[in-house]
Design a protein around this nucleic acid. Structure first.
Lengths: 118, 118
DNA sequence: TAATTAATGCGAATCATTTGCAATTGATTG
DNA sequence: CAATCAATTGCAAATGATTCGCATTAATTA
């Protein structure tokens, strides 16, 4: 039986406090005395428990974020900032008209340019 | 000045003929006498030329597909099959209500279960 | 407390991708 | 056509992200 250990809790806290999604390396840098391999194992555990979400935002490096309500992501191709936004998933599902498919998870990723200059 | 060389054309042809998006390794296996590093460089070139599209469908391995009309992807979590579908992007954009963001690319990824058994 | 199970650290392995560099090809110009 | 310059390729090694094996430690149960 696996458990939410102290180290796993510490990692969860880091992600909870972070406004942005973090990479495993960033989490590792933010916590102290937790081996990188353990960070990876913990992130996997927390993802399975659905306490956090793993995101693959276009790069090969995964990012993790604390799981609140489901939401989507817009990535600025100029400044790499990630913006969150919610959407009426049901309506989107209708628009998509996916047939013969039991939708489990819907993820919208937007790429473009944010107004980071102002 | 870069060009669509014979090897790049061969890789493009493979992708054009493939019904599914392919990984770099799969492309490499499908062509003969093209080094893997060249495959990667070619895929990057073709992506920049917008002749193909690079997809990051949840895994850390990128997949590439021939660029036809913009469309979206549904991934079956049981059989890993990837299904394509189109959608009225403009309407989705409206639903999203992304503000202060110049949308360049809209990608919807759906995860769930397809009816692969029948 | 002994015995069992799970979690962790450490180092090495693996997988995907990129890079440096020399050899090759291709295009261009004198 | 030969000489030159630029872009492409192969090969091997490097890098970055992630995973794995295994011995050690911590936690839980009998």
């Amino acid at each position: 039986m696996s458990k939410l250990t102290k180290k796993r809790q510490a990692i969860l806290d880091i992600l909870k406090a972070s406004h942005d999604a973090m990479s495993a390396a960033e989490v590792h840098a933010a916590v102290s005395d937790i081996d990188l391999a353990t960070v990876y194992r913990s992130l996997e555990y927390l993802t399975n428990e659905k306490l956090i979400r793993r995101l693959q935002l276009g790069t090969q490096e995964a990012r993790y974020e604390f799981q609140t309500e489901p939401h989507h992501h817009a990535i600025c191709t100029e400044c790499d900032r990630v913006i969150h936004f919610t959407a009426p998933d049901e309506k989107i599902k209708e628009l998509l008209g996916v047939k013969d498919f039991a939708v489990d998870e819907l993820e919208v990723t937007v790429r473009g340019i944010c107004n980071h200059d102002k």
